[in-house]
Design a protein around this nucleic acid. Structure first.
Lengths: 341, 341
DNA sequence: TTGTAGGCGTTATCAT
DNA sequence: ATGATAACGCCTACAA
């Protein structure tokens, strides 16, 4: 099965290569009959155009890429679906590109833009701390979706869609306080310059506004040797907390996965939720609703955010607008995992 | 920021393009100093080679692609990690390519082989029913990983790694029977030619061997309008089952996600697990362990399977062996969701 | 050790 | 409506 090229097809059909090219690319000026004949031959011989050659030659493809860090994160699953359908609806090609944790997403993006002649990019997840200079190299429009960034990015360079992580975090911790909790432990990543940090800040402010002192012993950092933001990590941290004998009545994990791990650790210790401890999370994953008890959490409006992301991207591509920044409101979903004391 | 090519770099450095090429590709015969100088200039001007051009020119790249249907399936997450590390350990490039549910994975694969000059492919998930003829076009080695296929594929064409879905399914249903359950409902996909069907067969055989008649009313099909294999689907089906008033003491969902949905429906109906109903799943997802109660399930040895997949693939690539077929044993993990009656 | 030139498979620009 | 031909950016003989 030697590889067959456009030239071979042309010969087989007794036409020139450009005619074959016109046939496969749905060009207007081509005789319908010859086109049909060519398509026939192509099918028969299983000819498939080489994308590398196409991308190399084409000046612009209609492709949008989603770059995503931590592809296994269930939080992104539903967003991806919407990205895909929206992009296809606009007759663009949808490319999903996973980025390794150690890779620099901008480097990956630049490479991809050259390779595939992208029209636009969506960055999903991860921490964003890049110099404007480098972002400039990326000379296509891009949107940061659900990426918190503490640093001040040049707001004209890129667009963004997210929730106010700090404010929403404040909201749920404040809710715990209003329920009467005074000893609220938190599970948070150690050195996180992004959403982890923002959500942690919300925790601090909420406690302060409620006249509660932050206790160092109740600030629990995720384990380095375990995947951050995982159930496993939440479990390990909570187990340690319980065994330390530290006094607390509620635990706030900055993501739902950790919250679930926390719940399990509590159950394994023979305690009950919410009778013995209240547990709260963040994100609004499906599972937080299906868990038993359902988890009190901050639900991000993922569908709307995904739609907005694509809308903004296309607006910028078509030069309808310059960079936009949208902050969505998230919803405090009260589950069965918290109670007043 | 116009795009900069290898020619530009050559000019900037005052050398020929081949020297630049040698520098970026770590060729041996190049002066260390000129190489260092070139690298310097490349960094300064942010030159990034165009992959399309490279792929087009190269006769073979050291790249392996994982094609995966249903990328959001948590079952694949841990496997992907292992694929990646194993492939990188062998100094190959790891490419993760998602396949749309409606797409034909073989078509995608053929295209990708041409575009990236792949050395090998792993197909992950989905149903496999392709003609040998078409598979032949794929003239690189490939392995089907965790793909059940009822049809008899030519065993010499491709390799495979999986569990015996039918047998393992039998195992867990038999376990339920031995616990004394006689009215065991099942949640299974409707028209599934692959693992769904195999697992369903295991259910049937187990019941028969235990002298239990299969009751049509207890065979519940996933809803068409909802994602199959989802918690949501398991919830909807179970809710309907409960409301139908049908008598049963245990429910077996052919995947853990569905089992969790089933649990939640039972809780929402004010019932208890396992006191009122026993629930069993299949797959051995992390969450089945973290759920409350933990779910009795069949745990597939994902790590070993992923490792075996890569090992076989490389064996075939290096012509050490011809196609291999490996079936792994899965483990019945007894959780808190089932009890004897 | 280095430079020149040809070609990878395709599309776009010309003619015809 | 169709065909020849020049790029696209890179790698790699081959020559120097």
């Amino acid at each position: 099965m030697e590889t067959i090229t456009i030239k071979d097809v042309a010969k087989l059909c007794g036409v020139g290569v450009s005619t074959v090219s016109r046939a496969i690319n749905n060009h207007p000026d081509i005789n319908e009959e010859t086109k049909a004949m060519i398509i026939e031959v192509i099918k028969k011989h299983n000819y498939i155009p080489n994308n590398s050659a196409r991308n190399l030659k084409r000046l612009n493809s209609n492709a949008i890429a989603i770059l995503i860090k931590g592809i296994s994160n269930p939080f992104f699953s539903s967003m991806i679906k919407i990205f895909e359908s929206e992009i296809k609806r606009k007759k663009y090609t949808f490319i999903l590109q996973r980025v390794d944790n150690k890779e620099d997403e901008i480097d990956v993006a630049i490479e991809l833009v050259k390779e595939k002649k992208l029209k636009g990019i969506v960055f999903l997840g991860g921490y964003f701390s890049h110099q404007s200079e480098k972002l400039m190299q990326l000379n296509v429009p891009f949107v940061l979706s659900t990426i918190g960034t503490t640093q001040k990015l040049d707001r004209n360079i890129c667009s963004s869609v997210s929730v106010d992580d700090s404010k929403e975090s404040y909201k749920i911790v404040d809710y715990l306080c209003k329920l009467g909790h005074k000893k609220i432990a938190i599970i948070t990543p150690m050195d996180d310059e992004s959403i982890g940090n923002l959500r942690f800040n919300g925790y601090i402010s909420a406690l302060m506004d409620n006249g509660i002192e932050v206790e160092e012993k109740l600030v629990r950092f995720m384990k380095d040797e375990i995947d951050s933001y995982s159930m496993e990590n939440g479990y390990a941290v909570t187990k340690e907390l319980l065994e330390s004998g530290e006094d607390f009545t509620a635990i706030y994990a900055i993501c739902d996965s950790c919250a679930i791990g926390a719940c399990k650790a509590i159950f394994d210790a023979g305690k009950k939720i919410p009778e013995d401890y209240s547990v709260a999370g963040f994100d609004g994953l499906d599972i937080s609703n299906y868990y038993n008890p359902s988890i009190t959490t901050i639900k991000q409006p993922v569908e709307e955010m995904a739609e907005a992301t694509i809308k903004i991207l296309f607006d910028v591509i078509s030069k309808k607008t310059s960079a936009q920044h949208k902050t969505f409101k998230a919803e405090l979903v009260i589950g069965q995992s918290t109670k007043a004391i």
